[in-house]
């Protein structure tokens, strides 16, 4: 399973050279260099050139390099041809509605890859009611798919509902997506919080996403990164708990007992898995010592 940290995935407009150059300084786990919504149709060619150049020359540090291409039925083919040979880590495919869409994307990506290139991963952006319904099939369509992400603005328009800050209208889509991703063993990434000036709203929305099981959140402004990380980072009490779980398991193993318990509760496999994930995250973030 792909264990790459994707707490925050930051959109960078593909037609803004300054932002493309500085995209790596904000500490986002992934940067998404955007060819779709941020770029007018007349500027797609220029943005492709800029992004291809940025991929070859700009140091994005620890941030994963993701490119959001245009929808498969518009400029996706040209986008993929231009950017895939420049070694992005992943392609964010918008408006995915079926496993078939993933197969199409995989074919185009594979055809554009250089012979020695690490296979480019796929993150599927689900932003239609149909896409949500097909979430599990999409996640399972190809091993390149490492995450499902929710695009709530288009999805809500598709529903014919009003988009609100509380997000009642996207509750179903969120839970379906998280469930499908978990079932398929891929990550789930929440929709961006679009009011960059409302830090409290962002915090509440991100906390909700975490409670629902999301592993990360899309972001439309660098100012959002710290808040998002603060939510998805394991807390000290999370880490303490996880260490106690692992300790209890080891102790039980050493004593030859098949059953471990912590504070009177049985420690079963799902609890161990959760504890291991927390410790893995904590190690990745340098919050605790240990092999990465």
């Amino acid at each position: 399973m792909d264990m790459k940290l994707r707490r925050s995935m930051l959109f960078i407009p593909g037609n803004n050279p300054g932002m493309l150059q500085n995209g790596g300084v904000f500490g986002a786990d992934s940067v998404i260099l955007d060819l779709e919504d941020a770029v007018a149709p007349s500027e797609k060619d220029a943005a492709r050139f800029l992004i291809a150049h940025a991929l070859r020359t700009v140091d994005y540090g620890c941030s994963e390099k993701v490119i959001r291409i245009n929808p498969l039925d518009t400029f996706a083919a040209e986008d993929i041809k231009a950017v895939v040979p420049c070694h992005p880590d992943a392609i964010l495919v918008p408006k995915v509605e079926s496993a078939e869409d993933i197969h199409t994307a995989v074919q185009m990506i594979a055809a554009a890859e250089q012979p020695d290139q690490t296979p480019v991963k796929i993150i599927a952006l689900l932003e239609t009611p149909r896409g949500i319904l097909e979430a599990y099939n999409i996640a399972k369509a190809d091993p390149r798919v490492v995450a499902l992400a929710l695009g709530a603005e288009d999805y809500t328009a598709g529903l014919g509902a009003m988009r609100t800050k509380e997000g009642t209208e996207i509750f179903t889509a969120r839970t379906i997506l998280v469930n499908a991703a978990a079932a398929a063993g891929v990550q789930s990434i929440d929709t961006p919080y679009t009011d960059a000036n409302d830090e409290e709203g962002l915090l509440a929305d991100t906390e909700l996403a975490k409670r629902l099981g999301f592993k990360g959140k899309l972001s439309i402004n660098p100012r959002q990164i710290d808040v998002i990380h603060s939510v998805f980072n394991p807390s000290i009490s999370d880490i303490d708990w996880a260490e106690q779980v692992i300790h209890a398991i080891r102790k039980a193993e050493a004593e030859g007992s098949g059953v471990a318990s912590l504070n009177g509760k049985m420690v079963d496999l799902p609890i161990v898995n959760r504890a291991e994930r927390i410790l893995h995250l904590a190690r990745l973030l340098g919050l605790i010592e240990g092999a990465k």
Binding site: M19, V25, P222, R223
Partner: peptide, 9 residues
Amino acid sequence: DPVGLKIAD
């Protein structure tokens, strides 16, 4: 400016 804000932070 996000870069300015990053520096300020």
